[in-house]
Amino acid sequence: MKVAICAQGNSHTAPLDPRFGRCGFFAIVDTTQNKWEFIPNPGATSGGGAGIQAAQELAKRGVKAIVTGRVGPNAMAVLQSAGIEVYTAVGETVQEAYQNFQNKNTTPLEKANAPSHAGIKQK
């Protein structure tokens, strides 16, 4: 299974990005092979609809779960339609968040926990 983690940089030690739609990078981990891949988030520089764009990209790449901080309503709608599970991240770095996800220390998120445009106001 592929899981995506919102990251501020493109390495295992990069800090988590609490934002979904506007996070800098996604760490995409293939859990069966423990294979890591870092991709820039196309939503990060988007004029609008960042979360929609980010969610679509992850769906296209076959991601089945995401580990993040805050997800807006439109992104959540796309994620749910795509059957992607959403988990609230625990930890400081991408690596820690992934371990906590693997150890089932993360809680699933059923609905959006951020208003529209929340991510653009941070940073």
Binding site: G48, G49, S81, A82
Partner: peptide, 14 residues
Amino acid sequence: YHALAVLPASVLIF
């Protein structure tokens, strides 16, 4: 403006 999202088996319109 990302008013449409196309997934493998569905389309979302915003």
